[in-house]
Amino acid sequence: MRMKVSKWKKTIILDIMLAPALILTLIFSYIPMAGLVMAFQNYKPALGMTGSQWIGLDHFEFLFSIPENIQLIWNTLIIAGMKMAANLIVPFIFALLLNEIRRIFFRRMVQTIVYMPHFLSWVLVGGILIDLLAQNGGLVNQTLTSVFGMKPIFFMGDGDWFRFVVVVSDVWKEFGFNTIVFLAALAGINPSLYEAAEADGAGRWQQTWAITMPSMLPITIVVGTLALGSILNGGFDQIFNLYNALVFDKGDIIDTFVYRYGIIGGKFSFSTAVGLFKSIVSLVLIVMAYRMAYKLANYRIF
């Protein structure tokens, strides 16, 4: 009994320090969840949440009943899936390479330069990309035609190329930022392991395979698991700034559709329903990935 009381006394300060964060989460993340009822209503602003008519799963049915919307969901999955894989692999490899650079100053400089694009807005990058990839006079196509003698490629107007552009530009913009987490993990590896390996006569490749890679596995799993949560996020601001009518069939995603559809009529209910649908899918995927990570790699986040 006395043990318990003193333990409680010990943690009370810490509990108080934690409280603001908990309260904020409660107010801004949990209480608004009550608004999810809108997804099952024909929500009319004038009538409010309590007065609007209940319509059950109509909005969800509507989302799946239209053939074009199935295409949207596929587009989203494909684009988000490719982005997820690329955004895991590229920063990982880049972090490994950067870690091999011995000159601290050069390494820091490269690191800073590559994460800069993360802070650019897609409005800006979109404008630059459209010019850069133009069929006539765009830098990329000029190089392709004059140096390689190829025909110009209509990057922004051909659905398959468009997806490619979306993924590559997203990786270009984000890989520097995503590298940070891997670099931190690399810095955390005990140097004595490398010293021991060196004493045993292991080369750089062997050190990488036997020490660096296994040490990086947990963080890679964490990053991958968390990324799964955004499998239905194709990246609204990016697509919205880059897409056009020619690539609607391959480039239009759920978010851009909700934006257009919601903006026209102020359709709170439908947007909420889509949001809820996305959250449920994310939750299921995260739980599954987490279980798998636990089973296969014996790694736990919580």
């Binding site: 074009e68 056009n244 009518a245 020619l246 559709f257 257009r260 026209i264 359709k267």
Partner: peptide, 20 residues
């Protein structure tokens, strides 16, 4: 409200593809 976006999307896609 219900079908507008689908129809606009269809319209834009086809008209653009014809022009191109």
């Amino acid at each position: 409200l219900a079908r507008g976006d689908m129809l606009t999307r269809l319209e834009k896609e086809v008209l653009n593809k014809i022009i191109y």
